[in-house]
Design a protein around this nucleic acid. Structure first.
Lengths: 190, 190, 190, 190
DNA sequence: GATGAATGAGTGTTCATTCAT
DNA sequence: GATGAATGAACACTCATTCAT
């Protein structure tokens, strides 16, 4: 599936690779689509579990820490099981399972919004909830896109740095997280 | 195809809708995949044509104008033939036609980089070429994502505004394009 | 089975409806066909039991009584468990269980032949055994056919009356059983 | 099919034996059931064509001739293509194609009723239409039954003779068709 | 060049049968 | 003995591709 997509997999293949017989497969899933749905559901559950950790990690982190934590979490999420996630992502639109991922994202947005409220004074945020949504969507879109079209980007420090810059710039942070940005470039500063 | 994807289309259907016979189809395309490739190629060509206009439009526009022009161009591009673009986008990874779109994006990146150089003094840009690439990738990712998962976003002024804010913030623009931002919000300002 | 036939029943269904597990089923029957055979055998046994009663009932009945008794018995036989009988009948030819029903019919033929001998003087019967066989076959065919193609006929007095007329005519009875035939019609009389 | 019934035939087998490919089969018939339906329809048409001849043959035939003609026609009908007819007959009830054969029988009943009216004076017939129906059904049932359960009967002179006796007896014919009945037996006479 | 009927490998799914528990 | 999860051969049906006309 990771190589050729969902349509290219035959149920007999799936069964063989899963180490069971087709018959057994159909004892648990009424049809092929249900199989994909179950897979998606499991992925969504795993992601949700990890997002809860992100929320806790954010807590009352400073602006710099928060941005770093958040961006890293987004990248980790994409990296982990990236190939599988990617394969599922491609099939999603046709299978009406978007809500599953929407659910996951909403949970992450809530955690981020909470933190934005904590750091309200240092950030240029009028509507935390909306801003959180925009950020999640942006970062999510960027990592999804990287996942789909430029997988190697997920492991590049440059990509991580730029995601932080994007986030910081959008949040109106006066100074980008110091440690990570190379002094000579001096963007979005002073 | 727009409703059920590429796999769901039979060659006989394609032929009938194209007003020719299957036989004729196979006189011009060796197989079904070549058909998709040709379709993608045509889309890529159309996009390239429009991008040339964007490059001209950018010219020596002011920072505000440039950002507005660029964001609007990205949205227009996605909106136009959005359903078809979307359908193709979904099938892409499996068909090795990524380079086609990469080519289109590279051309757009060049046009943007040129303009960044023109407005170098007012922007926080160390490496125009890299910055252009990051911006193209981000905006592209955001519009692609919207196209795939939240099509209605492409028509919302809010989405356009936030794309400009993202771009402006990343480029270190001190004031976001005035006309479009509502005063009370006062984000990313001094 | 009564609705969709034998082929449509799965062994798991049979087991569930019988209140046992498939495994248990296969402990007693080597395969699905054996199951059908056992069912047919049971039906044949039940019929045989009832036929013995018919033989006794015939005894030394008068011609009219005998015809009435016999026709009614044939109809009762078909009516009782008609749906099940019918379902089995349809599957029969393919399952080589014809002999079962042949056995049942032979027993009935014997009983009828005995009675024909008793009433020999009043009937036009040269070879009681052959005549019995022809009658059994005819009446049996007619009820089977009704069972298969016109089930409602089994309950119509008209059908019963015609069966008697057929039997009486074939046996050369000078007057049809009086009580049942409406005077105005006057068929096969003089 | 003639050996194992319709269910036992795979579409691939049908195609191979028909000298075409499965694909071609499905170009003309939407599914397996439609195939059976078409077969039944063709048989029904062939039978109808032959029945028209029977009607003509009956014409104003004498009682003896009429009975002989009719019985012989019924037997010929069953004998010809008997195996195919038989195979289809077995599958019929489950496929709702009974009406096709009902249509055929109704046509035959009409022809017979016409003749009964012509010979009204010599026969004991109150309602020609009803009597025709009963006769058709009886003879039809007997030949069907023979076809299904005792195919060799269709070729036996004895069976033909008994069918005539049955018909003659039911119609109140004073003398059975002379030529065919052996003098010593003298049934249903005087 | 155009046509579209013919092809048949390959698909998702069923269900009689087995066998470890 | 009883169970029912596991098995996989077999089925109806699809569709990319071919090729005689």
């Amino acid at each position: 599936m990771l190589r050729d997509g969902w349509q290219a997999m035959t149920t007999n293949q799936i069964a063989r690779e899963a180490g069971v017989s087709v018959g057994s497969l159909y004892q648990y899933f009424p049809n092929k689509e249900a199989l994909l749905l179950a897979l998606v559901e499991r992925i969504a559950d795993e992601m949700t579990a990890r997002l809860i950790e992100v929320g806790t990690a954010l807590g009352d982190a400073t602006v710099d820490e928060g941005i770093t934590t958040f961006v890293r979490a987004a990248l980790d999420l994409s990296r982990r099981d990236a190939p599988l996630y990617r394969a599922v992502l491609i099939e999603l639109p046709r299978q009406g399972t978007l809500e599953l991922f929407a659910r996951v994202n909403r949970r992450l947005a809530d955690a981020l919004a909470d933190w934005l409220v904590v750091r309200r004074d240092e950030l240029d945020v009028a509507d935390p909830s909306l801003t959180a949504h925009i950020l999640i969507t942006s970062i999510d879109a960027l990592t999804d896109h990287a996942l789909l079209f430029q997988p190697e980007l997920l492991d590049s420090p440059r990509f991580e740095r730029e995601l932080r810059a994007l986030m910081a710039g959008y949040l109106g942070v006066r100074r980008a997280p110091a440690a990570q940005r190379s002094p000579p470039r001096r963007r979005r500063t002073t």
